[in-house]
Simulated assay, not measured.
Amino acid sequence: MSITRRDWIRQSLLASATMLVAGPHVAQGCASERPDEILGKDDFILLNWNENPYGPSEVAKQAVGDAMKYANRYPDEKINELKEKLAKKNGLKPANFLLTAGSTEVLSLLGQHVGLQRGEVLTPFPTFPTALRFGERAGATIKKVELDANDRIDLDQTLGAISDKTTMVFICNPNNPTGTELETEDLKAFCRKVPENVLICVDEAYVEYSNAGMKGSMVDLVNELPNLVICRTFSKAYGLAGLRMGYAISNVRNIQALRDRHLGAEISTGWPPLVAASASLDDPEFINTCVAKNAEGKQIVYDAYDRWGVKYNPSSTNFVYARDDRFEKDLVAKMRAKGILITKWPTMTDHFRVSIGKPEHMRMYVKTVEEFLV
């Protein structure tokens, strides 16, 4: 369907289909990696879900404790407060933000939107699968563009793959599971070239860890491009994965359309995650420390892989993606038997992924995984 920019602005692309409600999401390939019986046990080193081993920050913990006396109240006040803070931090308005229980809620809404139009999601692949999986469940076609020889997103190939069937382009930057990052200006140029009747979803879950940092965000394009939606989360660098706090950034019409179709009407989050997120934004030193310690942990893995001749991607995230051909088969199971959980999605036919824990975790990981070198 071809529409003009003026038509698009009058009626958001996201307002053109009814959203459905799907069941709870489990990240692809992770359901069997972390069963309930091990949650909370200190005898496992958890290096499989890209969690921040240092979080939440002390100020976030204090804020959550103080907030419990308001747990009987709806959190409208704190929703508005967090939006104001995010708007100031990103140079936008509160109306440019939708708060959700993790960024997976935004991704699932976008996937369902495309699926209910029987549209097409175009994506570099492999990548984070939530939007793709929910899109397929709702009837979308998924069109994949292979990564280049260095596991990097090929923007030229992706742009060339856009057709009149394409409803949304999904870009995860830095990319999960490969850990690679696009140059900021290259991605901005790409976004500007995408036709205005095609949504662009840029998932910035790992932007705080990236080489470019927050300067690598596409947020500067929000007021320029009416078809851009950015997803972010407090689950990674901020260490709030268990509190489920994320958000979408877009123009006001898109945000309103997403909110109208959001199952929780923006109150799926409560006082604890809202105040934890707000307090975390006031504690930049915690993020700086986590990023620095993450780099230290990555270097431990890099040094070991270099010694052993293991091929890996220098990572702009809190995980490392590596080829598995230098290790025995069934590495995930063998590491699990040693008390260390790592990841190998079904799509990772020749690779595996290890999240970065504390330096002592990574030294233990290196010592253990060396046992399975071939």
Rank of each mutant, 00 (worst) to 15 (best):
H262D: 12
S235Q: 15
N251Q: 00
L225N: 01
A241C: 10
P273N: 10
G270Y: 15
E196I: 07
K188A: 00
R259D: 11
S278Y: 10
A212Q: 02
V275H: 06
C191E: 06
S250E: 03
V207G: 02
T269E: 15
E208R: 07
T178G: 05
V222P: 05
A277F: 07
T180M: 09
A205W: 12
M218R: 06
A189F: 05
G216D: 09
N211A: 12
P272D: 07
I200S: 03
N211S: 09
I249L: 06
G216F: 05
M218Y: 03
E185N: 09
N176A: 08
I200A: 06
K188T: 01
C201Y: 09
A189D: 05
H262R: 14
P273H: 08
L221N: 00
K236S: 15
A248C: 00
N254Y: 02
V252T: 02
S217D: 10
L258T: 09
F190Q: 04
N251Y: 00
P226Y: 12
S235V: 13
S210N: 03
N227I: 05
G242A: 04
D203Y: 13
L281H: 00
E183R: 13
Y238I: 03
L182N: 10
S217N: 08
R253I: 07
V198E: 08
L225E: 00
E285G: 08
C191F: 01
C231H: 11
A205V: 12
I230C: 15
R192Q: 07
L263H: 15
L240P: 02
V202Q: 08
A279C: 07
T269S: 14
T233E: 12
A241W: 09
A189P: 01
G270M: 15
G239A: 02
T178V: 02
P284A: 11
T180V: 04
V202D: 07
A248G: 01
F190L: 03
M245V: 04
I249R: 03
D260Q: 04
T233V: 13
V219T: 06
E285W: 08
P177V: 00
M245D: 02
L228F: 11
R192M: 02
D186T: 10
L281R: 01
E266D: 12
L225P: 01
N211R: 11
D260Y: 02
P177C: 00
Y206E: 15
K215V: 10
I230E: 15
V229K: 14
D260A: 03
K236R: 15
E185C: 05
F234C: 05
P273A: 08
R259W: 15
R232Y: 09
N227M: 09
E183Q: 10
T180H: 11
A189N: 03
D260L: 07
A257F: 07
D260K: 00
I249V: 08
L182D: 12
S268R: 13
A277S: 12
N211E: 13
A205G: 14
V229A: 13
A205D: 15
A241F: 06
A241V: 08
I267E: 14
G239H: 02
P273W: 11
A277Q: 08
A212L: 06
A212D: 03
A212H: 02
G242H: 03
E204M: 08
C201G: 13
E285M: 12
P273R: 09
